[in-house]
Amino acid sequence: MTKLSPLKRGVVIFIILGVLTAIEYYLGISDVPSILLWAIALIKMLLVLQFFMHINRVINPKKGGHE
């Protein structure tokens, strides 16, 4: 992931999120245990936190300044 340019990384993450949402939807309308939906939601949340919100910038302030 780190090798990709930021723009391309955004596209990849977006596609993963889209696929997960589609899976979530189909699982949701076919009455599966909600634990699966929670798991998918959690993965989506972590993806956004890591790659869109750059949570490590606050944990490690030296990283990802506006170079």
Binding site: G28, I29, M45, V48, F52
Partner: peptide, 16 residues
């Protein structure tokens, strides 16, 4: 993105 994260959780909780 934070607002999006909230919806990521709320969507399955409310709809699915």
């Amino acid at each position: 993105h934070f607002v999006d994260v909230v919806w990521i959780i709320y969507y399955p909780v409310l709809y699915l």
